[in-house]
Design a protein around this nucleic acid. Structure first.
Lengths: 178, 178, 178, 178
DNA sequence: TTTT
DNA sequence: TTTT
C-alpha cells in the first residue's frame, strides 16, 4: 500500500495551550505549537549556540482529545507523526504553504511531564470553541486499569537473572566500536 | 547539550536531479526534492487513495558530495535529518516560511537503488569535489518556471511556484549549522 | 559506507542506578537497565493489559559520563542507539547471546526528568570502579551557556506571524486523512 | 495508554527465505532473519571495518502475509517494530532469552527492491492465504544444523546455534500481542 | 545466512 | 517533479 516512509519524531515543549477544534461530526482536532531546543557549535567562536525550532502539530482522533485535555503551555511531549504541507491563500490572494506534523491513527503522542499538565491536573480547561460540545462526554477519559495478571509469558528482566546472565562488557581493549 | 529531539525519517524518490551548490569555502550543499508515497482510506468511498507528499531536503557536508554525485531523478533514498523552518522575503516584500529537512553531520542519507544512480553508473554526473570553484557553473540556479495549476486539496509542491518560492539557500557564510 | 539502517528509539525509566565502568584508557562505559511500559488489548477479555519490556543499554563516550553522573534509578530517559547482539560463555561453558542497545557517537541520550536525577542533584555519586580516576576531571561538566544573540537568521515561530500565517485547519469535511 | 516508547527501525537484507507459520486461527506469523551492514573505524588501523548485525524479526497480522508471499532470501526491506525479549528453555533446562523485533499492527514492513522478490515475480512463492491449514507443509520447521565456529568478536547469528537456540514461536494461542 |  |  504505502510505498514510502514519512516519519517525524519530536520531543519538545508547548509554546502555548493546545488549540482544540471540532469537526462537524464532533471529532476533536488539536493544534500544537512545539519548540525543540537544540544547540550547535558556532564555527567562528567555537561555542555552543542554542537554537529553538518551532513546529506546528495537528492531532486527529482519540489522541487529540487526550492532548486537548491534558497538555498545557510548557508541557513536555513526545510526538510521532508525518510531514504534510498544505496550501492556503494569503490576504493578498497569493498561495502560501505551511508544513505541519500530522498525528493520526498511525502516529502517537506521549506526555513526558510527571503529571502531563502544568500546575495541577486540568485547571483552566481548553477554551477554543467547544461550546456546542457543552455536555461533551468525549472529554471524559477513563483509563482502563486492571490488576496485571501475567501468567506464563511474563516479560523477563534479563539483567536480573542471577547466575545465568552475562556480566556487562568488562574486557575493553579500547577497540570501542566507533 | 540538546534538550529536545527533532528527527525526520523519510524513504522516497527524487523528483529531479540533485541541485548541488558550493559555499565560498568549497563545501557542497545539495538540495533534493523527495516524494514519499502513501495511501489512506477515503471515508466516503472506503477506497485507498494514493497521496504523494513532497519534501525539501538540504544536505551539508561530506554526504552532500555523495548525494550530488550518485543520486539522480527517480533515485530511491533513505533520509534522516531534522526539521528546520527558514524565513525569506517574497517579491512583495512579505515574509514567507519554508520548512526543510536538514541533513548534516548528525543525519544520514542511504541510497536504496541497487546501483545508486539511474540508467547506469555515473553517466553525466558531477565528479567529486571540483578543483576550482571559481567559475563553477553548477552554482547557477534556474528557478523552475512552469505555472502548475493545482486545485482543491492537491498536495502542493512548494518548490515550484514560479516567482513566489524561495531560492535554495545561496548566501552561505560557512556558518553552516554544525 | 553503511549499507543499512539499525536504529532503536526508546523512552523509559531506569530500573536501577547506572553501572559505570572504565576502559584501560579511562573512557567511561555505562550500562543501563531500561523499562519501557506499553499496553496491549487482550484478545480474550478485550481489556488493556500493561506490559513492561526491559532493555539493556550500553553507552560509550562523552554521553556515558553524563549518563553515569546524572541518571539514577527511576530516571526517565530518551535513548537512541543501535542493536547489537554479543556472544558470551555461560557457567556451563555454553554459548549465550545477549542483545543490547549501543549508544555511541552516533546515538544519543536525553534526560527527560525536570532535573535529570531523582531526589536532588547528584547525591550518591556513581560507585563502580572509578578509584583510579580519583582526581577524575572528566566528571566535571561545564555546560556552555552564553547569551543567545541571533541576528538575521532567527528561527521563526511560524504560527505567531500575525496577519500572514494560516489559520489552523478549520474547514473539515470529515474527510480526515485516515 | 502507553507510557513509554519502544521503536526499532531497520533496513537490511534477508539472510534466507521467510519462515511462515500459522496460528490455530489461521493467522500468519512470519520469522525473518535480517542483516544490517554498517562499518566503523578501527582505532588501531584507522580503517573502516565492515560489521554485519543479524536481527530476528517476527511479523504478525496482514503484513505477515505480504512478507511471506513477496520477500525472499536477499530481499532488501524496511522494518519498523518494537523490541521484545522472550524466555525459553534450553535443552539443559536452563532459561535462555532471545530478543526479537516484533512487527504488529503498530509496525510496518516495506519492500525496497524494485520488484519485492528476487529472481522474477513470485517464482515458487506461497500464494496468499492457504485455504486449508490442515496438512500445511509450510508449518514444518527445520532447525539449521551447521556448527558455525566463531572466534573472537565476530557478530553472532543467534538463530543458528544448533541445539541451543529457540524455536521460532510456535505455540500460538491466538493471544497475539495486539 | 544477506547485500554492494 | 518521483516511484510501483
Amino acid at each position: 500500500m504505502a510505498r514510502g516512509i514519512n516519519k517525524v519524531i519530536l520531543i519538545g515543549n508547548l509554546g502555548q495551550d493546545p488549540d482544540t477544534r471540532y469537526t462537524p461530526n464532533g471529532n476533536a482536532v488539536v493544534n500544537l505549537n512545539l519548540a525543540t531546543d537544540e544547540s550547535y557549535k558556532d564555527r567562528q567562536t567555537g561555542q555552543m549556540v542554542p537554537r529553538t525550532e518551532w513546529h506546528r502539530i495537528v492531532i486527529f482522533g482519540k489522541v487529540a482529545e487526550v492532548a486537548g485535555q491534558y497538555l498545557r503551555k510548557g508541557s513536555k511531549v513526545y510526538i510521532e507523526g508525518r510531514l504534510q504541507t498544505r496550501k492556503w491563500q494569503g490576504q493578498d490572494g497569493q498561495d502560501r504553504y505551511t508544513t505541519e506534523i500530522v498525528v493520526d491513527i498511525n502516529g502517537q503522542m506521549q506526555m513526558l511531564d510527571s503529571r502531563g499538565s502544568e500546575g495541577g491536573m486540568n485547571q483552566g480547561a481548553p477554551q477554543g470553541r467547544p461550546q456546542q460540545q457543552a455536555q461533551a462526554p468525549q472529554q471524559q477519559y477513563n483509563a482502563p486499569q486492571q490488576p496485571q495478571q501475567q501468567g506464563g509469558y511474563s516479560n523477563p528482566a534479563p539483567q536480573q537473572q542471577a547466575g545465568s546472565m552475562p556480566e556487562p562488557i568488562d574486557d575493553f581493549d579500547d577497540d570501542i566500536p566507533f
